[in-house]
């Protein structure tokens, strides 16, 4: 199967039932996408396929043929980061940091679809992503800061 990862063309002819998660982490060495539960329950492995947030542990290689996959490594543009990445830094969101790739990818997908979500809409969109450190209120604030235009993309 042929597809793109962060704009780079790749092709794969192995087991089509391999989850995208393990392809990214083990075969491509792109470890920004995290392994949390392997069952679509925690959101740590969230990436975009054709702009939609998906759990890469529940996305099979067969399904990514012909698609454009975006991971946390490709969300920003070099040193110029996505507004959410900047907001995450400004609000000092991460504690351990492990779930945050997935949180940011989920939030980016939410804002792409709904640029000005209500608090309830944020809760609904983000409730599939667990943060065991409990950074939720700062995640919520960061999403609001980007939605309101208070924080824009740039460097940190």
């Amino acid at each position: 199967m042929d597809f793109k990862i962060n704009g780079r063309a790749v092709s794969y002819d192995g087991d089509g039932e391999m989850p995208l998660l393990w392809y990214l982490r083990d075969l491509e060495g792109m470890t920004g996408t995290k392994f949390g539960c392997g069952a679509g329950l925690c959101g740590a492995c969230t990436v975009h396929v054709d702009g939609m947030a998906v759990r890469s542990c529940q996305t099979w290689m067969d399904d990514v043929d012909g698609t454009e996959v975006t991971t946390i490594e490709g969300l920003g543009n070099g040193e110029t980061l996505h507004a959410l990445q900047v907001a995450w830094a400004e609000n000092d969101v991460p504690q351990c940091g492990y779930c945050q790739s997935g949180q940011i990818m989920q939030a980016a997908s939410l804002l792409a679809e709904n640029p000005n979500p209500t608090d309830e809409e944020i809760d609904v969109a983000m409730s599939g992503n667990i943060c065991r450190c409990g950074t939720y209120q700062r995640i919520k604030k960061s999403i609001r800061d980007v939605a309101s235009g208070k924080v824009k993309g740039g460097t940190i």
Binding site: T31, G32, Q100
Partner: peptide, 21 residues
């Protein structure tokens, strides 16, 4: 003071135990 790993955290480049290669 901001976390010394902040940029790594938000860009996915931080290395956890599961990420070692």
């Amino acid at each position: 003071v901001r976390n010394i790993y902040m940029k790594d955290f938000v860009t996915g480049s931080s290395q956890f135990g599961q990420d070692v290669r």
